[in-house]
Structure formats: C-alpha cells, structure tokens
Write a protein that binds this DNA or RNA. Sequence first.
DNA 1: TTGGTATATCGGGAAAATCCGATATACCTT
DNA 2: AAGGTATATCGGATTTTCCCGATATACCAA
Lengths: 99, 99
Amino acid sequence: MDQVEVFKALSNRTRLQILNWLRDPQQNFPEQAENGFDHGVCVGQIQRKTGLTQSTVSEYLAVLQRAGLVSSVRVGQWTYYRRNEDAFAALINSINTDI
Amino acid sequence: MDQVEVFKALSNRTRLQILNWLRDPQQNFPEQAENGFDHGVCVGQIQRKTGLTQSTVSEYLAVLQRAGLVSSVRVGQWTYYRRNEDAFAALINSINTDI
DNA sequence: TTGGTATATCGGGAAAATCCGATATACCTT
DNA sequence: AAGGTATATCGGATTTTCCCGATATACCAA
C-alpha cells in the first residue's frame, strides 16, 4: 500500500464524495435498483451524480482503484465499482502506526 | 477540519516522514537534547534530517500546521514543532464516518 | 548598534493534477 | 454486419504542487 498514492487519491472533494456515496448505494443511487447492487454502482450513475464529464469520472475511478480504495467488476457493457473496505482499515492502521 | 486540506498535506513523502519523526523526538533528533524536548523540535533539526533546503522545510511545516497536524511555539529565535495528536484522532474519526 | 543565527516569505522553473472534448474500445441488439 | 450504449484512453489548456535560491523578518549577543 503506497501511502502517498492513497492520500493523493483522497485529496479531491469529488473523489471523497464518490467514496462516501458508495457506502450506501441503495440510498445514494436509487436508479441502480433495476440492475441490483450486488456488484456495486456503474460509472454512468456516479458520473450523473457528480455533474462532471464521463471522461473525468472514469479517470477519478481509475485513480481510486490504483490506490486500492475501490474495486471494479465488468459485467456486460457496465463496469461496477464498490468500496474496498479492507483498504480503509489498512489506511487507518497505517496512520496509527507509520505516520 | 478541512478533509481535502489534510489529505493534501499528507500527500508528500517528506511530510509523512517529518510527522513520523515527530512521534519520538528523543529517538529521531538526539541533537535536540541540549534544548530539551518540552516544546517539540526546531526547524533546523528537521531541515538537516530531510536534506532539503531551509525554505522548503519551513514551507512544509507551514502546510502541516495549516492542516492542523502540527502546532508550533516560538521560543527565542527557534520555532518548535510538535504533532497535534488530536488532529490524527479527528482524521481517523472522519475516515470512519464521513468518507 | 552591529553582526550573527533561526525562521518565514517571495518569485519562479519544472512537474503533476484537474477537468475537458474527442476518440477508441468493448459489448450488446437486431 | 451495423448501429447504439457504456466505459476507457488520449491530447491539451489551466491550475496546483514541488523545491529551489534570494531576501525579509525576528531575535540574540557583544
């Protein structure tokens, strides 16, 4: 786990919002209901909620994924993103011990 | 507490090192012994240990202070910096609840 | 007051981040 | 195969970060 990479990924208001929204997909992405929440939330839902362009949101999700904070699954033409709770636990542990 | 400002402050290898060194001044800044550790560690000690220039380290400490992660005391011609443990507790709390 | 030491601030060149529009890729449907 | 939809990648203008040298400020000692 690259601490600096994780903190850089967290150094952006929109990316923090996305992570927070992904805590409760059913609450924050009701449109997603038709596809179910098993895999996470697809890029388009997140993009519409941020108000930013598709390319920007796709890149932001890639940043979060490179930092390990989310994982993704491709299902058909959709990519579903979800939080990686292990990474948050590891982050807190590293703040307590390494920083 | 501005989450983004805190994460930006933590998004730099040298600043993370400084915070870690300040966990144990006696161990990491033995030269400081003559002045005592009551107030923290002065800028020059930290600067020498990083190997960066004085102006850079002074600015880095200011960044950490604006984020609330350290506090400083001026004593004579020295400014002593120390960790603000409350800020780390608040950070962990905010990761657990807001992010 | 003068000279020395410690720290902060200023100005800037180089590198990285931000966010966009355009385009490429992948997959699905007919 | 052809057209449509979802996502990723590319190229770039703008802003921010990184780290420096030079200079300003604050304090101390003779």
